[in-house]
């Protein structure tokens, strides 16, 4: 499992795992993109846009939520789903990344916000990084 959806009455909850923190970020982005448009990234054959993103936060949990929020904002403004990512800098409190996006016409699901509620990046008993992310939809 790299991510799975878990039941939540009003919103969408995603449980994500990764062998490394960087992989957790990549898998969280995949999970978010799949909410926005199911299967879109599996079929992408070209990138139409490229953006640079830089996010700093005081903890790895806040960094993940803030990173996803900034990608979501760019997704909405650029009308591009960013299926490709290359981290040029990655630490627990700061990331710099190149995002590669593909234009889309409309979403399956509109994500209003990515919440800190129940988000907690930690290692599970298998040694993987994991967290739950609740999306306001």
């Amino acid at each position: 499992m790299i991510y799975e959806y878990v039941p939540h009455t009003a919103d969408l909850a995603l449980k994500v795992e990764g062998y490394t923190l960087k992989e957790l970020f990549v898998n969280s982005l995949k999970g978010m993109n799949n909410i926005l448009k199911s299967g879109f990234c599996d079929e992408v054959k070209r990138f139409d846009s490229q953006m640079t993103i830089e996010v700093s936060s005081e903890s790895k949990t806040e960094l993940l939520i803030n990173f996803l929020s900034d990608v979501l904002a760019l997704t909405n403004i650029q009308k591009s789903i960013f299926c490709g990512i290359y981290f040029s800098y990655f630490s627990e409190t700061r990331v710099v990344a190149q995002l590669f996006g593909t234009w889309f016409c409309c979403f399956d699901e509109d994500i209003k916000g990515i919440t800190y509620h129940e988000a907690h990046v930690s290692r599970n008993k298998n040694g993987k990084f994991e967290t739950c992310i609740i999306f306001d939809v």
Partner: peptide
């Protein structure tokens, strides 16, 4: 949505 996101981040 973005106003909320921006200001929740500041307040955290």
């Amino acid at each position: 949505h973005q106003v909320a996101t921006d200001h929740i981040r500041v307040m955290v």
